[in-house]
């Protein structure tokens, strides 16, 4: 219905359309082209900077943390969506609102919250000391911060699908004698597959690009807690532009690839 109602622009529409295209081109396309141009102009320096030890370490850490978040928040997302869509309980609306909160909060504030919790003087500090686990200014801090900012994505995508398909198939399976596990693996999971894929891509993209919370909680210590984004930040501060622009282009390309993958899976739906 939507595609058939679109028309070839008449002469009144041409002006606004050109303005719209010009605005988006100036805002996104031209600056992106500028980044590509700067990287291309300093290509050998960029390659050297990106192959340096700290840069590779930052990329590795970012990928590892992102993978961990995809798994943890994937499991939580499916469980959370099932609970919030299929169950009715007292605190449901509160939990529903809390899940969305990471989208609304400034990541720096979240970082501060985790520092206050897990820092030496925080309430959980002595406990963590006792079991010998450092969170603040250590890799677990980077993980926690990224888990927080990627919390809602898989849950939201899966919840949308669950709402759409309803629970008649699950009830049919249960009536026919399937155990809850069988119902989940044979009926629910295949049904929510698309939502799970979309949520995974969004989680991955967000995890690769998280900056504020990771900077505050992880402390961006080179070769230890520095991620791709905090590597860029450090490079800008120390005026190492080729390293900063190179890593930025890499992250940007990853984001574009993620978006492309998402649109491809949506088209397949």
């Amino acid at each position: 219905m939507r595609s058939s109602s679109r028309r070839v622009p008449d002469r009144y529409a041409a002006g606004p359309l050109v303005a719209v295209l010009g605005y988006v081109a100036c805002l996104i396309l031209v600056p992106l082209a500028a980044l590509v141009y700067v990287v291309a102009a300093h290509l050998s320096e960029v390659v050297t900077a990106l192959l340096s030890g700290p840069a590779l370490h930052a990329m590795g850490l970012t990928l590892a943390v992102a993978a961990l978040c995809v798994v943890c928040n994937g499991v939580f997302g499916v469980a959370g969506a099932l609970v919030l869509v299929r169950q009715r309980f007292l605190l449901r609306r509160l939990v529903d609102a809390l899940v969305e909160l990471p989208l609304a909060l400034s990541p720096v504030m979240t970082g501060l919250g985790f520092l206050l919790l897990f820092g030496r003087t925080g309430p959980l500090g002595p406990l963590l000391d006792a079991i010998g686990l450092r969170v603040a200014f250590a890799v677990p801090g980077v993980v926690v911060a990224t888990l927080f900012v990627t919390l809602p994505f898989t849950l939201r995508e899966v919840a949308l699908v669950l709402e759409e398909i309803g629970d008649s198939e699950e009830q049919a399976a249960a009536t026919l004698g399937a155990s809850p596990w069988q119902t989940f693996w044979r009926v629910t999971l295949p049904n929510i597959k698309n939502g799970l894929v979309a949520g995974t891509v969004l989680t991955l993209a967000r995890a690769l690009g998280e900056f504020g919370a990771v900077l505050v909680v992880g402390g961006a210590i080179g070769n230890r807690t520095e991620t791709a984004t905090t590597f860029i930040h450090a490079a800008v501060e120390s005026r190492a532009e080729p390293a900063a622009y190179g890593m930025a282009l890499l992250l940007g390309a990853a984001a574009i690839a993620a978006l492309g993958a998402l649109q491809w899976t949506e088209k397949k739906r």
């Binding site: 988006v24 996104i28 980044l35 690009g209 984004t229 800008v236 992250l251 574009i256």
Partner: peptide, 21 residues
């Protein structure tokens, strides 16, 4: 596609892109 791009691009990269230009 361009309109959706800012949802995917890390915001630090978005800032850097503006500095590049």
């Amino acid at each position: 596609a361009l309109v959706d791009l800012p949802l995917a691009i890390p915001t630090l990269v978005a800032g850097l892109v503006i500095v590049a230009l």
